[in-house]
């Protein structure tokens, strides 16, 4: 079957090149959107993903929005008293700006009890002209803070995480409470027990807390929808192209059937062609997508090898699904056509 598949491609390189080009363009868009989904998603929630907790306890009505959540410090002891809770850490959160002279860097202030003194910034803030030892002021509040270092802390709502001690955050907020509590639990049912014991709270699993970050669902959902349509479009496009190609070679297929070619051989050659063409297109699209990613900001475009491989594999499956429509024609091609007639 490779004999037939390859001979036809060799005879019509421009035709198959154009098909591979179409697949490559589609694959390029898929890879770029995949990179954006991962990158923008990480920019939205990676700061929360890195927290070593099982759940987050918010104030009732906050709907998982840390900015809208405020709980008293006295709740810590009450949560610790719930069966199944193994650890409770208070969390302070504010979207803020760090200013130093004319420079202003948006940050997500994330305050915990065990944070280092001063403020530790995510590595991406290095590019903003800030250095360890710099004195900055947190706005609003105009509270002076000293940068003590950089670490891989991630982002929340597209702002670099800035880690600081809870007491500094409370000073900045001029309030004694906390935003929420990070909890470690034996199981998810413990979260329900917390909600029951503290009716003014809203405990969420870590995954639910991430999904609840404002804008995250809308952002990833929109790009996800575009990707879905792109996959569907790719299936349709590849399906139509191979359908036309199959129609065009009905004569040669009939001759092959008349010379004894089995349907299995014809289908095998066809699938080989589809896979080879689609794989070439996907590899070209991947190369272009990676090149595009190299010139895009690293906090916007992230294409992990696993995600890229999954997107590529899905495109190959989509190509086969699209091309499957023509398989029936291969099965039904009438060898009598080789005698220049149907009967």
């Amino acid at each position: 079957m490779r004999f037939l598949a390859w001979r036809e491609v060799r005879h019509a390189p421009v035709r198959f090149g154009l098909i591979a080009g179409l697949v490559a363009l589609t694959a390029f868009l898929v890879f770029v959107l995949t990179g954006l989904t991962v990158g923008l998603g990480a920019a939205d929630v990676s700061g929360l993903q890195r927290l070593p907790v099982d759940g987050v306890v918010y104030a009732k009505g906050a709907d998982g929005d840390l900015s809208r959540s405020s709980l008293p410090t006295s709740d810590k002891a009450l949560i610790e008293g719930v069966d199944g809770v193994t650890d409770v850490q208070p969390l302070g959160f504010t979207m803020a700006s760090l200013t130093a002279g004319q420079r202003s860097v948006p940050v997500a202030l994330l305050a915990t009890d065990n944070a280092e003194s001063g403020v530790v910034l995510d590595n991406q803030a290095r590019d903003k002209g800030l250095s360890p030892g710099d004195e900055v002021r947190a706005q609003p509040g105009n509270v002076p803070l000293k940068i003590t270092g950089f670490a891989d802390l991630g982002s929340i709502q597209h702002a670099a995480v800035a880690s600081l001690p809870l007491k500094d955050w409370q000073r900045l907020r001029d309030a004694a409470g906390v935003s929420a509590y990070m909890v470690s639990t034996k199981d998810d049912e413990t979260l329900a027990a917390i909600a029951k014991a503290l009716p003014d709270t809203e405990p969420l699993t870590k995954a639910a807390a991430i999904d609840a970050v404002p804008g995250y669902q809308a952002e990833t959902g929109t790009i996800g929808m575009i990707r879905t349509f792109l996959y569907a479009g790719a299936a349709l496009l590849i399906g139509v192209v191979f359908w036309i190609l199959t129609l065009q070679k009905e004569g040669p297929l009939a001759v092959l059937r008349a010379t004894g070619a089995s349907r299995r051989l014809l289908v095998g050659a066809y699938v080989t062609q589809v896979l080879a063409t689609a794989l070439t297109g996907v590899l070209l699209g991947a190369a272009a997508g990676v090149a595009m990613g190299a010139v895009m900001p690293s906090n916007v475009f992230v294409l992990p090898p696993g995600e890229a491989a999954a997107a590529g594999a899905l495109l190959l499956v989509v190509a086969l699904v699209g091309a499957a429509a023509s398989v029936r024609r291969l099965f039904t091609v009438d060898p009598l056509l080789s005698l220049g007639r149907t009967a």
Binding site: E8, P252, A258, S338, G340
Partner: peptide
Amino acid sequence: TAYVLQASALIGFL
């Protein structure tokens, strides 16, 4: 059995 098909029935891409 084998067919001698008409000239137009040769496989064009071979």
